[in-house]
């Protein structure tokens, strides 16, 4: 059964016929070719598919797209403006928070959600908030450093 839904993605309204089985992540990657959200586990445990839906960070693999008709969705592709990386992205680059980079888009989005709600988190708050984003390369050290540096800059 296919249904027509509208997703507002990175400011664009996209009308899509979807199979009810498809997750939001499936739709982003396979229908809309937005492949920045990554499929690391498909069960909500790794955070690589994190996007922001209606202002909240979510694992897009654990959402049926059909349930989210009309939602406002921000993905990593919507972060850079005028060809310039978002400060969060820039900080991750400059502080060395990116190695293989597979987890990076998920971190970018969850860090965005964190700083939107809490622009000056303590390090412990940042670490707790990001516990749902697994990284196997960096030991998180430089990711956290990037978060703290963005928080500091915005002060």
């Amino acid at each position: 059964m296919k249904t027509l839904i509208t997703l507002n993605i990175n400011g664009d309204a996209r009308e899509i016929y979807i199979d009810a089985r498809r997750s939001l992540l499936d739709i982003l990657r396979d229908e809309l070719a937005l492949m920045g959200a990554h499929r690391g586990c498909d069960s909500g445990d790794c955070g690589a598919c994190t996007v922001i839906v209606n202002g909240q960070p979510v694992t897009s693999c654990m959402m049926l797209a059909a349930d989210w008709n009309g939602a406002e969705i921000l993905t990593v592709e919507g972060m850079a403006k005028d060809g310039q990386l978002h400060p969060i992205q820039r900080a991750l680059v400059e502080k060395g928070g990116i190695q293989c980079g597979f987890c990076t888009p998920g971190f970018v989005m969850n860090i965005k959600a964190l700083l939107d709600e809490n622009p000056k988190p303590t390090e412990a708050e940042a670490r707790a908030w990001l516990a749902g984003n697994l990284c196997r390369c960096t030991g998180y050290a430089k990711i956290i450093e990037a978060v703290m540096s963005v928080a500091e800059e915005s002060a």
């Binding site: 909500g44 955070g47 994190t50 839906v53 909240q56 960070p57 979510v58 694992t59 654990m62 959402m63 969850n110 959600a113 964190l114 908030w129 990001l130 516990a131 749902g132 984003n133």
Partner: peptide, 9 residues
């Protein structure tokens, strides 16, 4: 419980 992302859902 779980993570910030899962708690949102």
């Amino acid at each position: 419980m779980a993570s910030e992302q899962i708690r949102s859902l």
